[in-house]
Design a protein around this nucleic acid. Structure first.
Lengths: 183, 183
DNA sequence: TCGCGCATGTAAGTTGTTACATGATTTA
DNA sequence: TAAATCATGTAACAACTTACATGCGCGA
C-alpha cells in the first residue's frame, strides 16, 4: 500500500521519470524505501490512471522518450492526507538473524565468513551515506526545513549502519571465543 | 523464499505447532522474522507435503487437536544447506521516513505527534527485549553456543531500538527548533 | 567488442495482508 | 459478561521478485 506514498513523496520533491525514481530508491533513498524498476513502472501507470500523477512526454533522439511524472492536485491531497495518518512499524525479516537460530548446524567459521561479508557491506553503505551527508547537508542550520527533514531520514540510515557495525564486532568476539575453545 | 527457513530454524530449536510459531514470531523472535498465522499455517502444510516436516497429532479435549511439527531429515539437510549460502540484506521500507520526505506538507506538530508515538513504541519494545535478555541470557559465559547465538540475535534488536531512540531525540530537537522559529 | 548506463516495459510466479470462519476456556 | 488466549484454517487480494524483452551510446 505505501509504495504509492513513497512515489508521491519522491515526486513531491521534484518531478521525475521511472528511471530517475528507480535510481533514487537505490541510492539516495536506500534507507527509506526499496523498489525494483518493474514495480515502479507498474505503479506509475496505475497512479496516472487514478489521476494522482500527470505525465509529460520528453522526446529524445535514439533513446526511448522520457516520461516525466509530477504530482497532480489530487496526488498532493492524497499525500497530505496520508501524512496525517499514524503509521505502524515496518515488519522485520532478517535472514542473517534466522541464520543465528540455526547456526549450530554449521561450523563457526562459516558464520564468521558471513558476518564479515555483511560487515563490509554495512561499512560501504555507511560511507555512502556519509558522503551524501557531506555533499548535501554539511550546513544543517542554513538549510530549509524540507531538507532538514530529508537529512533526518539519512541520519537514521547512518545511525542504523553504525549500530550494525558495533553489533558485528560483538558477534565476531563471540565467534572467535568459540573457535578458540573448539581447537 | 525465506519464511520457509525461518520456520525450519524455529522448529530446529524445538518442535512446535502453528500456534506456537505464531506466538514466537510475535514475541521472542520479533526482531528476527515477522509472519501472520495465516502465512504460517499455509507454509506448514506446504512444507509437510514437500517432506521437510513431520506432523504429530496431539488430541485435546474441547479444543482443536494440536498439530506438532518437527523437522524431518530432509528438513535438517535443507536448513543446513541454506546456512552455507550467503544472504543479501533485507530491503528497507520505512513509512516513517517516507513521511519525512513529504513532511513539509503538514505542520511540524503533526510530525512531532508521530515521532513521539513511535518513540514510545520503540521504548516498550526495548524493555521487552531487555526482559527477555535478563530472563534467558543473564550468564552468557555459561550458556551453550546455540543459546549464545540466539542471544546475539536479540542483541541486534536491543541495539537497534537504542539506535532508534537516540535518533528520535535528534528528530524531536529539530522539530522543536522549527516549531519555535515559526511562532 | 564487451559491459555499463540510459530508458522503457510485460508476464509469471511467490510472498504477504486482510477479511472471514469457528468455538471452548481462562481471566479480569 | 466481556475480552483475551488457545487452536485451527480458507479465500481473495495486494505487493514483491525474477525472468524476459528491446536498443542506442559511450568508455575501456
Amino acid at each position: 500500500m505505501s509504495l504509492k506514498f513513497a512515489v508521491l513523496a519522491a515526486l513531491h520533491e521534484q518531478p521525475a521519470t521511472g528511471y530517475d525514481l528507480t535510481r533514487n530508491f537505490r541510492t539516495r533513498m536506500a534507507n527509506v524505501w526499496n523498489a525494483s524498476h518493474q514495480q515502479i513502472y507498474r505503479e506509475l501507470s496505475k497512479m496516472t490512471e487514478e489521476g494522482l500523477l500527470e505525465v509529460e512526454d520528453v522526446p529524445q533522439d535514439s533513446r526511448p522518450d522520457r516520461k516525466l511524472y509530477r504530482l497532480s492536485d489530487a496526488g498532493i491531497a492524497d499525500l497530505a492526507n496520508w501524512l496525517t495518518e499514524s503509521q505502524g512499524r515496518p515488519p522485520t525479516r532478517d535472514p542473517l538473524l534466522v541464520k543465528l537460530f540455526g547456526g549450530d548446524l554449521v561450523d563457526p567459521e562459516s558464520l564468521m565468513a558471513e558476518i564479515t561479508r555483511q560487515r563490509q557491506n554495512w561499512r560501504q553503505e555507511l560511507d555512502r551515506y556519509r558522503d551524501i551527508e557531506a555533499e548535501y547537508f554539511s550546513a544543517p542550520e542554513q538549510v530549509p526545513f524540507r531538507f532538514r527533514l530529508q537529512h533526518l531520514a539519512l541520519r537514521k540510515g547512518i545511525r542504523s549502519m553504525e549500530s550494525n557495525l558495533a553489533w558485528a564486532d560483538e558477534v565476531v568476539a563471540v565467534l572467535n571465543h568459540e573457535i578458540k575453545s573448539r581447537s
